[in-house]
Design a protein around this nucleic acid. Sequence first.
DNA 1: GTCAGATAGTTGGACGTCCGAGTATTAAGG
DNA 2: CCTTAATACTCGGACGTCCAACTATCTGAC
Lengths: 166, 166
Amino acid sequence: MTRRLPFDPIAQARRLWAEHGWAEAAPGMAAVTSLMRAQQIVAARVDEALKPFGLSFARYEVLMLLLFSRRGSLPMARIGERLQVHPASVTNAVDRLEAQGLVRRSPHPTDRRATLVELTDDGRAAAAKATDELNATVFAGPGLAPDDVERLVELLTRMRGAAGDF
Amino acid sequence: MTRRLPFDPIAQARRLWAEHGWAEAAPGMAAVTSLMRAQQIVAARVDEALKPFGLSFARYEVLMLLLFSRRGSLPMARIGERLQVHPASVTNAVDRLEAQGLVRRSPHPTDRRATLVELTDDGRAAAAKATDELNATVFAGPGLAPDDVERLVELLTRMRGAAGDF
DNA sequence: GTCAGATAGTTGGACGTCCGAGTATTAAGG
DNA sequence: CCTTAATACTCGGACGTCCAACTATCTGAC
């Protein structure tokens, strides 16, 4: 990446938006751009924490989903649904997790179209260790005071709900 | 993508986090995950709005940066710095914008290492039209009440600042 | 002046996302 | 039943991100 900036580029963009007669859209522009940039920053921290385990956040999410499922296994389609990603992305993630020995594909007992993905013992161990690391280095200190974290979650939840996420 | 879920997966994950003895990290986990998902949703809306113009958000940001610059041109390095992306990403974006005829590379007058990127007339027009579309379809209604938009921007700005974004 | 180190940009590779197309298989309607 | 739709998954391609390595050029210290 690069060094830190001497000013807030989003605040500046917002001023420019107003100057160009787009005042009405300026707050939304600032919100969307802030969201993009904040996600970029957080994703970089998360990936950094997961790197020693050879995991990406996408693959970590798959592991946790399986860990929290009743039988430690789920059909591919359920995974894509829960994580809201394209089926091809699930195929991709599972391919890599399987190559790492963290999950295993098996045929669905009753639906021959479907493929079950199940955790291996290694996968279970990796999920636990990666979670400890993430909890300690990222989730415990997301860069905001506890009250602000709650406010942020509340706002984003409202936003996701309005967008039809759930 | 897929259909909407009948519940909030992040709220559920948060409960599970608490049950597994990770209560301290649960709010941060919820914040990080919400941020990821909200960004995914917003990015999809933005890309949808930009698709008719053959632009991605990354390339749109480059165009706007140039549009707002004094001379309508900037060195590659300045672009990467402002957008906080890797130099290779700038090369990639500029390659495509140049192929689309929206920007032009030219040698830096005094520093022969550097390359200036400047807007073409087409690029200026595309930036204006894409902005109108984005303002109307995304920025004007980001899915939150005006007060909440302000709160969200304020929280994310604080978060970015703490992370060293500016 | 010269030479080491910083900076600018490109390239190739690894992953991640999505889309669209194609193959199986199951479900639903007449 | 049987045909038509929907669903599950995979594959190939387009883009986006990053990193590491490499060339070219500039800068600063001696």
